[in-house]
Design a protein around this nucleic acid. Structure first.
Lengths: 130, 130
DNA sequence: CATCTGTTCTATTACTTGTATAACAGATAG
DNA sequence: CTATCTGTTATACAAGTAATAGAACAGATG
């Protein structure tokens, strides 16, 4: 299975699909040029409506992660080797990072805990080698 | 102003309040024992309904960040010096961290970029000194 | 031509978000 | 005791979101 989702999660399904694809690209499981299943096919595989898959793909397209052709379907457009991020991305991203790290700090994770876990996660990504 | 929100953001207001409070606790601007404004007062200050503030406070209470008494209102219950996190928190948190770091990696931020920005953020927190 | 792909449109159901009004209970200050 | 502060609860409403559903269209492919 390329992708698994949790129907009982409070996270919207289309968001879960987006997250799993982004993680797969970061991990190197998906590389630039790799095709994604068609919206209808993935809908059948996951037991959900194809419109929900379409929404996830549209999100990924807006973020520049995939390219969508009418003929060949969705194809990975970007990975860690595709160069630096768009202008403005880094600052907006750091703002979200700040909120997430604040939560960990407030809940009692130490600086070393946080940095150690960050390194562990990055070590699991293909981008960690570049 | 203890707290500022963006009414035009796509992030729900109650979530913004939650985020700002968590960040203030991490930064040391708010410490364990510090009082928060009453829901009605903060509602007036921010120009929003007090039920929205109440929802944010209820979220913070569920997360263990604040304590709510009928007499003294909302008080900060937890900060970086309150000991280790609840069982299960770290793993669930790391799962969200993974998604956020995957996004940065996919968009082209290098490992050093990510770790550098993480350190910068943590340096701005009081927890960074413990 | 039949079939695959994404795209668009409309519709419905259920849930979320924010606002609004009202009332209740406990604590406190006058 | 009364007035006023606090959080809490209940209900309602408007607007938006999430997911499902059916139908149809356009382009590419066998």
């Amino acid at each position: 299975m390329l992708l698994t989702i949790d129907l009982d999660s409070d996270t919207p399904i289309y968001q879960q699909i987006r997250d799993r694809v982004v993680e797969a690209v970061a991990a190197g499981t998906l590389k630039a040029g790799d095709p994604l299943p068609s919206t209808r096919q993935l809908g059948v595989d996951l037991g959900i409506n194809f419109h929900t898959v379409s929404k996830a793909y549209d999100l990924l397209r807006q973020e520049g992660v995939i390219r969508i052709n009418r003929k060949s379907g969705a194809v990975v457009r970007r990975d860690h080797g595709s160069g630096p991020p768009e202008a403005g991305f880094a600052d907006a991203w750091q703002s979200r990072l700040r909120t997430l790290l604040a939560e960990a700090t407030t809940q009692g994770l130490t600086r070393d805990d946080v940095l150690g876990r960050s390194q562990d996660v990055l070590d699991g990504f293909a981008g960690g080698r570049s």
